[in-house]
Amino acid sequence: MPVTAELRVYWFKRRLFEEKQAYSMKKTVHILAILSLFALSSPSMAQTETINLWPEGKVPNSKQSDIAEKSDTDAQGILRISGVTVPTITAYPAPKDKATGAAVMICPGGGYGILAASHEGSDFAKWFNERGISAFVLKYRLPNEKAMTHQHEVPLMDAMQGMKLIRQNAEKWNIDTDKIGVMGFSAGGHLAATLSTHHNMGAKASAEGKPNFSILIYPVISFLPAISHGGSRDNLLGPEKSEELIRYYSNELQVSEQTPPAFLVHAMDDTGVPVENSIEYYLALKKKKIPAEMHLYPKGGHGYGMRTEGKGSLANWPEAMEGWLYSAGYMKK
């Protein structure tokens, strides 16, 4: 069959089309490969992992209830979680090329009624990752007599278990077991200070539960009436509130030689949690000759996290924390 000029043109155009399609496919595959490599290597896209603190059906002090966990994000982008009855930790491992071996377990605040899980949790996890420090955001159970027995015991149980899990998985996350600290904000600061002072107390005492350092940001420390945050105290202690428990959970009274070093931040105009909470804890550490660094600022109020715009010199506090972490060997320059 003779090949006409029209047929030659048709086959030529078809060949050009197929070659163009093949080139386009190769280019797409190449771009996708580059994007995949970028995703794996980019610190800002590090893989997180959420782990239940306790095996299913074996959560201590737990009882059946109709309480349901709920998450809400407000117009300022602040995430608040309520009704927590299944505690977890979310791991943010530091990028391997930056990792210093240090790690921090972060306890968000919220008066033991909610968890401010973003600006006092995940935002700081990312900040630590950028500086080579692995971070773990603790979603601890919120005390409620409907969902648990002896509710005042529960947040500390969860914090102890979180610290143990981090230590037990240190090799997996490239962590030095002598460089694991705890950080807490407001009521989360009370939990962090309670872990720091109570890890060696009672039947559940454990060396694995001891933090190597603590970072306490506008923390609730005391339950004594003169300087306490009444809401945090009442939410934690619940119907078992007593003079004995008030003193037991007043952490300035529980500092011992086994309490780890601390870095503290507080604003003098904090009307929610009086600055005396940090001052009393600092003085208790000083009395026991435990290293401590405290930064007090004339204004800032409460609950700011890293949102310090318009709060004067308070904007310098993250830089001060950086310096402290570096001097203690938890961060590299």
Rank of each mutant, 00 (worst) to 15 (best):
V3W: 00
R8A: 05
K27H: 01
V29L: 06
A33N: 09
L37W: 03
S42N: 14
S44W: 11
M45S: 12
Q47S: 14
E49R: 08
T50I: 08
I51V: 15
L53F: 01
S71I: 00
D74H: 03
A75M: 04
A75E: 09
I78A: 05
I81W: 02
V84L: 05
T85K: 09
P87T: 07
P87M: 02
T88H: 09
A94D: 10
K96N: 12
T100P: 07
M105K: 00
G111Q: 06
A116K: 01
G121T: 05
S122W: 00
F124C: 02
K126L: 12
N129Y: 08
R131K: 15
S134M: 06
R141Y: 10
T149Q: 07
Q161I: 02
G162S: 13
Q168E: 14
A170V: 02
A170P: 10
K172S: 06
K172L: 13
W173T: 02
D176P: 10
K179I: 05
G181M: 09
G184C: 04
G184L: 07
F185E: 01
L191I: 10
S206F: 08
A207E: 13
A207W: 02
F213Q: 10
L216V: 13
P219Y: 07
P225A: 07
H229A: 06
G231H: 08
G231K: 08
G231Q: 11
R233A: 14
L236W: 07
R247H: 11
Y248M: 09
A262I: 06
L264F: 12
V265Q: 09
M268T: 04
V273K: 05
P274A: 11
I279G: 09
Y281I: 11
A284G: 13
K287L: 13
M294A: 11
K299S: 03
W317H: 08
E322T: 12
M331L: 14
K333R: 15
